[in-house]
């Protein structure tokens, strides 16, 4: 059993989905980004996805692209990610790292797994790495008892659904639509179908992300998924507010709205 599985089980026992919130490290600066992650925990996030910035984020839309580009310009380093992981763990949520592959590879896969675990992280989400391309990574993560979270999409075949469910630990990350991160007016899409297919393929916990931005969306997804993942709508709280404190306040309000959503109170 992992910290992630435990937390998802605990949420299920409360009759609700878990709230998973993403923020990039280093936007608008390292300290504020870590404060923002802690604020999310205080406002009701169960799991925090901590994103080390990457120069070529092919799966991210314009809001997250802009934030990570600014973070990189300001000189954010991988060490800051491990600091953020520690802060989130101390605040009482389950930290997972969401990283593109090359920064992990250059850090050294074994060292990366060790450093995530050492700072209190429970798992790593790899948006541009599939299990069949990531055997080295899975082996490194297993050696450190770290959860590996892979993505499935509406285009994922039955065969690949099995492959991904088998290689994932903690949860499977299901995207309800084809596209990059960013807010959408509606989140219907193929979410429920993808979640059901992942479960049929053996996934125990399936969380749904990409496109989720309101409490109403969260409530809708909470009906069929084990967790609701929100990224862009949270990042936007920070990018929309020049003033850091105003950004943190907007973030707390948004997380509270989403936390009510995963409890069915949209």
């Amino acid at each position: 059993m992992s910290a992630l599985t435990d937390r998802l089980d605990a949420c299920r026992a409360e009759g609700r989905a878990a709230l998973v919130g993403y923020l990039p490290v280093g936007y608008p600066d390292v300290d504020t980004s870590i404060r923002a992650m802690v604020a999310m925990v205080e406002a009701g996030a169960d799991i925090v996805e901590i994103g080390p910035p990457y120069s070529d984020p092919v799966l991210d839309g314009s809001v997250i692209q802009l934030a990570v580009a600014r973070a990189l310009e300001a000189g954010v380093r991988m060490a800051d990610t491990f600091k953020a992981v520690r802060a989130v763990a101390d605040a009482g949520a389950v930290p997972v790292v969401m990283s593109y592959f090359n920064p992990m590879l250059q850090h050294g896969l074994d060292q990366f797994a060790a450093d995530v675990v050492q700072s209190g992280g429970a798992g790593v989400i790899t948006p541009d790495l599939t299990p069949d391309a990531g055997e080295d990574w899975v082996a490194a993560a297993r050696a450190h008892d770290l959860d590996t979270i892979f993505l499935v999409a509406p285009s994922t075949t039955r065969e690949r659904m099995h492959l991904t469910a088998q290689a994932s630990r903690g949860f499977v990350y299901a995207t309800p639509l084809m596209g990059v991160t960013g807010e959408r007016a509606a989140v219907g899409g193929a979410g429920e179908r993808v979640v059901n297919e992942a479960r049929e393929a053996g996934a125990v916990n399936v969380c749904v992300g990409v496109g989720v931005s309101t409490g109403e969306h969260a409530a809708q997804i909470a009906k069929y998924a084990d967790g609701v993942i929100v990224g862009t709508a949270l990042v936007r709280c920070l990018t929309d507010n020049e003033d850091k404190e105003a950004g943190l306040n907007a973030l707390r309000l948004k997380v509270a709205e989403l936390a009510a959503g995963v409890r069915g109170n949209a």
């Binding site: 541009d128 285009s155 994922t156 690949r160």
Partner: peptide, 12 residues
């Protein structure tokens, strides 16, 4: 070489 891409592109 290889294929290091998001799952969403694998089918294509």
């Amino acid at each position: 070489g290889g294929r290091f891409v998001p799952e969403a592109l694998v089918a294509a």
